[in-house]
Design a protein around this nucleic acid. Sequence first.
DNA 1: CGGCGATGCGTACACTCGTACACATGGGAT
DNA 2: ATCCCATGTGTACGAGTGTACGCATCGCCG
Lengths: 178, 178
Amino acid sequence: MARRYDPERRDRIIDAAIRVVGARGIAGLSHRSVAAEADVPLGSTTYHFASLDELLTAALRRSNENFAEVMRESEALADPEADLAEELAGLLGEYFSGGRGRAELEYELYLAALRRPALRPVAAEWTDGTAELLSRRTDPATARALIALMDGICLQVLLTGGAYDEAYAREMLGRIAG
Amino acid sequence: MARRYDPERRDRIIDAAIRVVGARGIAGLSHRSVAAEADVPLGSTTYHFASLDELLTAALRRSNENFAEVMRESEALADPEADLAEELAGLLGEYFSGGRGRAELEYELYLAALRRPALRPVAAEWTDGTAELLSRRTDPATARALIALMDGICLQVLLTGGAYDEAYAREMLGRIAG
DNA sequence: CGGCGATGCGTACACTCGTACACATGGGAT
DNA sequence: ATCCCATGTGTACGAGTGTACGCATCGCCG
């Protein structure tokens, strides 16, 4: 077969990996499944990413960037007049409004760091980055606690299959933000 | 080989599964690895647990029971005089004092519910049970928020590889408990 | 323009896995 | 005492996996 000149292949493989994780979970991620999704031969995925951990790391980093984008777009976060707890609760509402899919995907990548030390620095990047963003509206310790509570609330929704209760989230975030 | 009469084999297989997950993670869980750990033939594990999901469900349920035991033993939780936030922060301290191992194992099973609907009812059982326990000291909504925050704090410790800060946990739990 | 190294391609191998199945055994119901 | 079926045992098969390797191709640097 003719060889293709494809300078952005690496990026496309990462995108394919994210789609595969979204559709079949990390358990369904393999060099072959990614190769098929990205429409590249098997050898190409192993060439660009020596191990699956490497690929997952890249996928988590990209996922983080996507989320960071969303938070940056929310100008309300920068408005010192707005109620921080309400803004965050609203943000989570939007996050869940598109169905479980997206949140499930991003959390699966994030939680994968539990067992994969290679992902931990990337997970820490996300936490630190978000904390820094929130630090413009409150002190650093409070910022971290807000993130922890949001994580916990998302977890309860995702793990137990329950619904997201925005008023409840607003109330509890408010207790921390003061 | 002589057949062994072994009425508690099912239980021993569950224990073996928990040890395997602790040592190699859910990714390393297979009928064969469990069979080897429990010292039973392969066919025996497939006989007692038709699918790995079934085995994971049983493992998560047992893990929940172990944790519930710990919480019940903590009489301090029942003492209306004690400061709830301080008690919970202390409990988490004990939880982490034995190294990452135990928390990592239990959270891995718990978080597996994200992608395995079969585990979600069991995860919900745990949340509901713990919330009920805490409801003796506070209202139900606050109880759920305390659990969410504890989950989030544990997650930050486990995912980023950071250390557990008991004073910080106490402060933030206190803001929710009021 | 020449070549070389990065990139792409296809295949083969050894391994593990879930599943299925045929057969053995003996506890407990009848 | 007898028989049945829940339980236990061993093996085989096909599918999927990570990895390695040889060869092809061509952008780019000298």
